[in-house]
Design a protein around this nucleic acid. Structure first.
Length: 482
RNA sequence: UCCCCGGUAGCUCAGUCGGUAGAGCAAGUGACUGUUAAUCACUGGGUCCGUGGUUCGAGUCCGCGCCGGGGAGCCA
């Protein structure tokens, strides 16, 4: 309204584009004395016998609500304003003034308060102005973004997503939109969700009695992707620097605070890059994300520091400055063997590291992120590049305290004969990987990439301990409501 | 999927030895106040997760199921 003058009136009562963002008002972009209009949802109402009510209005543009002063002589004061409760939608127009009270610099002295949407039963409104458990809030996922915590998570999530896109764009990486539907039934990362239009109750049959997928939509079995990596490798060997960023699906029956059936993953792939370069990129990406977050969402981070994880800001500040520790698997085994404590799973070379081992390394030995590199080939995927020692592959995991594995990646096996030998060794069907093998036949080059679990990253930076609370509508085993 | 713990008012929880249920917050009403998720008083509010069983009697004990939490596995 500051910039648009009387346009709001011209556009009519339901006009939405003329309101000022509360974040802009509280950010000092509008000087006291100006007329402003805000629209949002009531957080709290406090009445004063001094002849006014205080109404905290929140529009989601930032963490803080705006304090509205509603004088009792407003025409709808007794009938409407005095009955506002948490969740009511309002539009308020008035003069921005320096606050007469403590706790805020400015407040809005209302000249007009329109109630756009009432809460029809305040007692049962699920989001009371009180503390709620995250477990409960998951049961009202459609309303939980109105809370401080989940609203802050949503803004942090968007901030980090933008930081990721910026990071890659500035380094000459191209965003590749790899397919969600895939026919690769063995991408090497867990069980898949089937995609089909066949009648589940009465599918067409082959002569042998099996399901006749030739009659299915794509004429073959298809699934939701578990990773864009294989596809993005094709674009990597043409555009050199590429990445995917999108949803990923895993039908694993995982019931933990770190797993979702539908989650978002960032997967860069770099041509002519080796494993150390890959690790450098991973470290730079995480640091760029953390820096952007501290810079752009100080309000939300202050909240997380106050209510969720008091160390979250200083942790990020420190991580940004300190180089990530690199540790070869061989050395990690040595470290664990000399840890001076016993583990449930005894430490020996060749074992896959258990959670307790990863936790010791990142939380106790390093005290921050650590990049573990060069694992035994037996415990890693077929596409990872065989090292010259013949016993390890150029794989890496980035482990962080509290979460564990936040990034998993590798240099890819670019030598066709070595890849084929690996496929044979694992009894995998080479013809099914025809197009993937082609990439090794036609101008193959060394290349490397990794997958960053986006929700794990959001969880790590905010201190929100369950990934189900950092994605808008979580999907997990036996849970796909909303 | 496995191990452990839990499910009681809108929310967070207490509930003794098996005898038909309570607090705080929220909500409503009032008082008070330039208040800060205000304070004080009063009021309303219950399918004790579901199901089967034991018992004269089950929130309480037992079986099964569902949901949630912590840990593990899988992984990002």
């Amino acid at each position: 309204m500051v910039d648009l003058g009387g346009v709001a009136e011209l556009l009519g009562a339901d006009c939405s584009m003329s309101a000022n963002a509360i974040a802009a008002i509280l950010g000092g972009q509008i000087a006291p004395g100006q007329r402003v209009s805000v629209q949002g949802w009531v957080r709290t109402r406090r009445d004063s016998k001094a002849g006014l009510s205080f109404v905290a209005v929140h529009d989601g543009s930032g963490f803080e609500p705006l304090q509205v002063i509603a004088p009792a002589d407003l025409p709808n004061y007794a009938d409407e304003i005095a009955h506002l409760t948490a969740g009511c939608a309002v539009r308020v127009t008035g003069e921005l003034v320096a606050s007469a009270g403590k706790g805020q610099a400015v407040e809005l002295r209302a000249e007009r308060v329109e109630v756009i949407g009432w809460v029809d039963d305040p007692e049962s409104y699920p989001i009371a102005p009180k503390a709620h458990s995250f477990e409960y809030l998951r049961t009202v996922a459609h309303l939980r973004p109105r809370t401080n915590s989940i609203g802050a998570v949503a803004r942090v999530r968007a901030c980090l997503a933008h930081a990721i896109q910026r990071f890659f764009h500035e380094r000459g990486y191209f965003w590749v939109h790899t397919p969600i539907i895939t026919a690769n039934d063995c991408e090497g990362a867990g069980s898949l969700f089937r995609v089909s239009t066949l009648d589940l109750l009465n599918p067409p049959r082959t002569a042998q009695g099996g399901v006749d997928f030739d009659r299915d939509f794509f004429g073959r079995e298809t699934f939701l992707t578990v990773s864009g990596q294989l596809n993005v490798e094709a674009y990597c060997l043409a555009l050199s620097k590429v990445y995917t960023f999108g949803p990923t699906f895993r039908a694993e029956n995982s019931n933990t605070s770190r797993h979702l059936a539908e989650f978002w993953m960032v997967e860069p792939e770099t041509a002519f890059a080796d494993l150390p370069a890959n690790a450098d990129l991973a470290e730079a990406l995480l640091k760029a994300m953390f820096e952007a977050l501290l810079d752009e969402r100080a309000d939300d981070m202050a909240f997380f520091a106050q209510r969720i994880d008091k160390n979250c800001i200083q942790r990020l500040e420190r991580i940004i400055q300190v180089p990530f520790k690199r540790l070869d698997y061989d050395d990690a085994i040595q470290v664990l063997a000399r840890a001076g404590r016993s583990f449930e799973f005894p430490v020996r070379w060749g074992m896959d590291l258990q959670s307790e081992h990863e936790r010791y390394l990142s939380e106790n030995y390093v005290g921050g992120p650590v990049v573990l590199m060069n694992y035994p080939k037996e415990i890693k995927s077929f596409y990872m590049r065989l090292n010259d020692d013949g016993r390890t592959v150029a794989a890496m995991d980035v482990l962080v305290p509290g979460i564990g594995e936040i990034i998993g990646g590798s240099q890819r096996e670019e030598r066709l004969e070595v890849l084929d030998a690996r496929l044979d060794e694992l009894g995998m069907n080479k013809t099914a990987y025809g197009w993937y093998r082609d990439l090794r036949r036609y101008g193959s080059v060394p290349h490397a990439g990794f997958g960053l679990g986006f929700e794990r990253a959001v969880s790590y930076v905010t201190g929100m301990s369950n990934v189900r609370d950092v994605i808008p509508f979580p999907r997990s085993p036996r849970s796909a409501e909303f």
